[in-house]
Amino acid sequence: MDDSSDAAYLAYFSGRLTALRRMAYLLCGDGDQADDLVQETVTKVYARWARISRVDNLDAYVHTVLVRTFLDERRRGWWRVSLLASAPDHPAPAHPPVEERTVVRAALARIPPRQQAVLILRFLCDLPVAEVAEVLGCSPGTVKSQTAHGLSKLRRSLGGSVNTLGDAREASR
């Protein structure tokens, strides 16, 4: 890429990395994996920047790449697991985890990845149905049905303790 294209790429991502990392964290629930998802997304976009920098809705395109990278990661099997000689040292979290956040995260992890992605994009990232459909490459009707099925499974998983995902949104923050 030439210098002006690199500058445009850097300008685009300099203000969006925090939002991308937040979306990635909401999708996977792990800070390190969120960083990996964002890094892979940024790399994929950089490789195609000359072509995709001209798309109409660049944010939607980048969100699509991020969500599809997350879904691809979920589809990969055990061969992605790395075996270590000893357990890695994990730093203690800066703040103790909030119980509700843990419960909601665990409940989200028990539903299928596509429904999980729909619920996170719709309710935690506040994307409209049409944009979620565009990101996932499906129809708005599919997004609506996946939302209904995902909410139903989430409610069953939580024992009916969450009336709306708005409660889950507050618990995840």
Score class of each variant (00 low, 15 high):
171 A>T: 01
166 G>F: 11
43 T>H: 11
42 V>A: 15
123 F>Q: 04
67 V>A: 09
126 D>L: 08
27 L>E: 06
100 E>Q: 10
24 A>M: 08
76 R>Q: 14
134 E>T: 14
161 S>C: 09
64 T>G: 12
19 A>K: 14
146 Q>S: 13
141 G>C: 03
153 K>F: 04
162 V>S: 02
24 A>F: 07
48 R>F: 04
112 P>G: 09
18 T>K: 14
120 I>Q: 07
138 C>D: 00
154 L>Q: 01
78 W>N: 06
46 Y>W: 15
7 A>M: 11
143 V>A: 06
126 D>W: 08
34 A>T: 10
91 P>F: 00
2 D>C: 13
103 V>H: 05
55 V>T: 13
96 P>Y: 02
68 R>A: 02
173 R>W: 09
50 A>F: 07
82 S>I: 12
110 R>K: 08
87 A>P: 03
105 R>P: 01
112 P>T: 11
2 D>Q: 13
108 L>W: 05
58 L>H: 04
141 G>Q: 03
103 V>M: 07
31 G>V: 10
81 V>Q: 05
52 I>W: 12
66 L>I: 09
17 L>Q: 15
160 G>L: 06
73 E>M: 11
168 A>Y: 02
100 E>G: 13
33 Q>P: 02
120 I>G: 04
80 R>A: 14
11 A>K: 11
29 G>T: 08
125 C>W: 03
165 L>Y: 05
101 R>E: 05
150 G>E: 04
73 E>L: 08
130 A>N: 08
131 E>T: 12
91 P>A: 05
30 D>R: 12
157 S>P: 00
16 R>Q: 14
122 R>P: 00
152 S>M: 03
31 G>C: 07
14 S>Y: 12
111 I>D: 05
60 A>N: 07
145 S>G: 00
89 D>A: 09
41 T>K: 05
126 D>Q: 12
31 G>W: 13
72 D>K: 13
118 V>L: 06
139 S>W: 00
123 F>T: 03
128 P>N: 10
161 S>W: 06
162 V>R: 03
158 L>W: 01
125 C>L: 01
51 R>S: 14
111 I>P: 03
12 Y>K: 09
148 A>M: 09
8 A>C: 09
103 V>T: 12
68 R>G: 02
63 H>G: 05
10 L>V: 13
56 D>M: 01
136 L>I: 04
5 S>R: 12
10 L>G: 13
158 L>H: 02
71 L>R: 06
153 K>T: 00
45 V>T: 15
53 S>K: 15
27 L>T: 11
68 R>N: 14
18 T>R: 14
117 A>V: 09
102 T>C: 01
119 L>T: 05
148 A>H: 09
98 V>A: 08
68 R>V: 03
135 V>W: 02
129 V>Q: 01
8 A>Q: 14
73 E>I: 01
11 A>M: 07
8 A>V: 10
78 W>A: 10
114 R>T: 11
90 H>R: 14
144 K>F: 03
3 D>F: 12
48 R>L: 09
111 I>E: 02
89 D>W: 02
104 V>S: 07
129 V>R: 02
136 L>T: 03
46 Y>K: 15
28 C>W: 05
25 Y>N: 08
85 A>C: 11
77 G>K: 05
107 A>D: 01
35 D>M: 12
169 R>K: 15
29 G>P: 06
70 F>A: 06
35 D>K: 12
63 H>Y: 10
22 R>D: 07
116 Q>C: 10
129 V>L: 00
77 G>M: 02
